[in-house]
Amino acid sequence: MTFSLFIEQIINGLIIGSMYALVGSGIALIYGTMRVLNLAHGEFYMLGGYLVFFLVVTCGVPAYLAIPIALLAAFLLGALIQRLTIHYLLQREGWAFSTIAVTLGLSIFLQNSALLLFGENVQSVPYYVTGIVEFAGVRIPMQRLLILGVAILTIAVMTYVLKATRLGWAIRATSQDRDAAAVVGIPASRIYLITFGIAAALGAIAAAMMAPIYAITPWSGLPILFKGFVVVILGGLGSFPGAIVGGLLLGVVEAVGVQLTSTEWRDVIAFALMIAVIWVRPWGLFGSKS
């Protein structure tokens, strides 16, 4: 393998990793604000993929319109699901487990609803942009650069929202202390609803960008959910910046690991990395112990 090929693989790892980061940051946001582990998060990714497919391929809507519509739909779906299930469970005893169990049920339910609606055929979306960029012998398709660009933009927007907007302050305050936030006038249940919607939309962005590269199937949520979990363990469960760094790291580690072994072992590498991190630093690579 030449050096430039190796660099290409690292860059590809970063690009895929940026998508892992978006999925993982959604899981982190949900866990961070309401302490709920969302096992149905992969399904937001899967449904996001189908939404884009339906709009672009079936209805012929241009991608630059289809993707925002898909995001909005994913946001509404996420918020609706939160309102109908998690919202009630959080008010009961034993919610830490019951919320995991209900999202497991939701995951199966949504997966198989997609199977009924769209069938088991593998679907894909045409490239949004074509062409290849070549620099010093390193060749990267434009589509992949677009993915990276969208990821950077999304992360920048999310960082701005969390740091500098009223909503972002409310999300951060609620995630740090729900009662104290209520006392200053922040309605936790509405923040939870919005956070769930945002997280679902983050999954849908990743799905929309990956749709031209990776096949869309009713089962495409599960592997990406597992990747998201690895990401949040690496970054510290509940940390948004941790999830971003964790995603990029996972992408690169996978890319290098696959070079050393073969593609079938990609997921084993990811999980082994996760278990190793849990063993050594259960609070994540970047978080603090408390």
């Binding site: 096992l39 830490a96 597992f226 469960l237 997921d267 999980f271 278990i275």
Partner: peptide
């Protein structure tokens, strides 16, 4: 390893991941 962990979500994630390693 999982007995060292108090957090329920961590336990859920690690056990799921372990089973995936076995399956793959």
């Amino acid at each position: 390893p999982i007995l060292r962990i108090r957090s329920m979500p961590h336990v859920a994630i690690v056990t799921l991941g372990f089973a995936e390693i076995v399956r793959i």
